[in-house]
Structures are given as structure tokens and as C-alpha cells.
Simulated assay, not measured.
Amino acid sequence: MKIISTPFELKEYLKNEKRTVGFIPTMGALHEGHRALILRAKEENEVVVVSIFLNPTQFLKGEDLEKYPKKDEADKLICKLSGVDVLFFPQASDIYGEDEVSLLAPKVRGYILEGESRPGHFNGVLTVVMKLLNIVNPTRAYFGKKDAQQLNLITLMVKQLFMSVTIVAVDTVREKDGLALSSRNAYLSPQERQEALKIATSLRSATAMVMRGVLDANTIVENMREILAPLEISYVAIVNREFVQISHVELGNSIILVEVVVGGTRLLDNIWL
């Protein structure tokens, strides 16, 4: 596995690459969810590139940038053992300058749900993803479905800016008890982790309701909120795949999303129906 730290060096390394390239951008603290992205990329491409970059522009003032889990050596080992060909490990000064051009998230989709409580967050996400895609110029880039709103906006950016990369969505990986894997799970105490299981329970209950023929969004959301209580609920929402809120579940075109705060830790999850 080759480790590269600057954009120029990586572009030079890949500029004459004729093989297909799969790319997984991460912020580090890798877990089995990231490994699933890597393994999917290995199945579908001849070269796999992973980036580890804790992007400061997507953190708002007072958020957890400074305490975000950092496991650099463990991450390198995971990448090596997973068969990654190139690991891109830049610093913020390699990615950003002093007078930055930046992308703005859509005025509607970028400021609902997670974007409503974190205004400007998706500006930072889209800007760094655009930079990384331009550096790597991959055939395919891989993102998890757990961050569904992020995935939707990145897919929209690629479409609207006429980029040639294919965005591949990969299913959420969960612990045996149903908790969606997340780097931020490391913040949870044992008690908080037990409380967080209400998230998966609420989504399973919503799925069961839909399977019984209950498609009314308000009924499903109300049931989920009862299960999640007394957790701090940021939102429970049902949208179609274009992230438009809908009044009834449309099978094959719906996502049920939830965000809660457990012990100060923001946790996202969803189910695609």
C-alpha cells in the first residue's frame, strides 16, 4: 500500500492510470462500515484509493472537531489489511488555501433535516468531496447509505456539475444488536449505548408497520417518537429519494430518517423502503 500526503503527488501518481479506480473518502476512525465500502470498491475496480482527512469546514463552531476520534495507525493497518492500493493522508493546509472558492449546498435540500440544525455543514461536505474527487478522478466513489442526506447531495452535485464519476451507495453496516456503525459511537458510555438502541428499534417498528400496510407518514413518525422517548430527538422524517417530505410511504421510493442526541452525541440512522 502506497501512502501519499499531497494532492500534487497523488495526481501525478494517478494521472496515467488506465485501470478503473474506486475511491472511498473518509474522516478516519475506520470501522467495519468503512471496510464494507473498501471491499465493495475492490470488487468493482482494479485500483482502490482511500482518503483519510478530518475536514474542518463541515464542523460548525462548538462541534466536535477537536475531539473527533483519531486512530491514524490503526486506520493505516485496516487499509493495508483490506487491500487498499493507495492511502491519501493530507493535512488541512494541503487541501485548503487562505482565500477559498467553495460550493454552496442547495437552498432547500441543504438546509432541511441535518442541514437545518447545522447550517453550512453541507457547504463544507460538498466542497471537500469536490476537491477530493478532482484530485483522485476516480471511476467510482463509494458512500454509505447511513448518511443519506449527504449521499443525496453528493449525487446531486455530481449530476448538476456534469462530473464523470459514478456514485455508489452502500448499505449501512450494523452491530449485532442493530446499532448502526459510526465513528461517533466511541463517545457513548455503556448506558448511552443501550439508550441508542432505541434508534434501531424505532426503525424496525416503522418497517413492521409498513409491512402491515400502514403507510401514513404521521402515524409512523408518531410511533417512532414514542419508542425514542425520552431521547433528545432532532428529527424523525419520511421523504422520497429526492428528499421531498411525503405524507405516505411510497414503497421503493422512500427513506425514513432519524437523528437523535444521546449524551451529547449526535447519531443518524435511516431505513430505505
Rank of each mutant, 00 (worst) to 15 (best):
I3A: 07
E259T: 06
L161F: 15
E9T: 09
Q160A: 06
I271S: 05
V125P: 13
I154G: 00
E116R: 08
H121I: 01
A148F: 12
A196R: 02
G124A: 11
Q160P: 01
E73D: 14
K11I: 08
V258Y: 01
E32K: 07
S82H: 07
L126G: 13
T20Q: 15
Y111N: 10
V125D: 14
P138F: 08
L30S: 07
D147N: 11
P119E: 13
E192A: 04
V173W: 07
L153K: 04
I227E: 10
L54H: 08
V173M: 12
R241V: 02
L14V: 06
L188I: 00
V165N: 11
V129K: 14
I112W: 01
M224L: 09
E66R: 10
R204F: 07
R193F: 05
E192P: 02
F143Q: 03
S51Q: 10
L30P: 06
V101T: 13
E192K: 10
E250N: 11
P25M: 15
F243M: 10
E114H: 11
S82I: 01
Q91W: 10
I271A: 04
P230R: 12
I95R: 03
V168Q: 13
K198T: 04
F23I: 00
R184A: 06
V49W: 07
K2A: 01
I255D: 03
V173C: 08
N45A: 02
K146I: 13
V170W: 11
P56V: 00
Q149G: 04
A200W: 12
L203D: 03
A237L: 02
E32A: 05
L251V: 14
T201M: 01
Q91P: 02
T166K: 13
G110T: 05
V21W: 15
L153W: 08
P190V: 00
N223T: 15
L153C: 05
A92I: 00
I220R: 09
K131H: 11
K71I: 00
V48F: 15
K145I: 10
V261W: 03
K176E: 10
H121L: 03
T139Q: 13
R193W: 08
S93A: 13
Y68N: 02
V21E: 15
N240E: 01
V210T: 12
S5N: 14
V210H: 15
G62W: 10
V261F: 05
L132V: 06
V244M: 10
G120V: 04
T201Q: 06
E73F: 11
L156R: 14
G178N: 10
G110M: 06
L231D: 04
C79L: 09
H34F: 04
T155M: 13
E98P: 00
G178K: 09
C79T: 02
L37M: 08
S254D: 06
S93Y: 12
D85N: 15
A200I: 05
A105G: 02
Q149N: 05
V262F: 14
E9H: 09
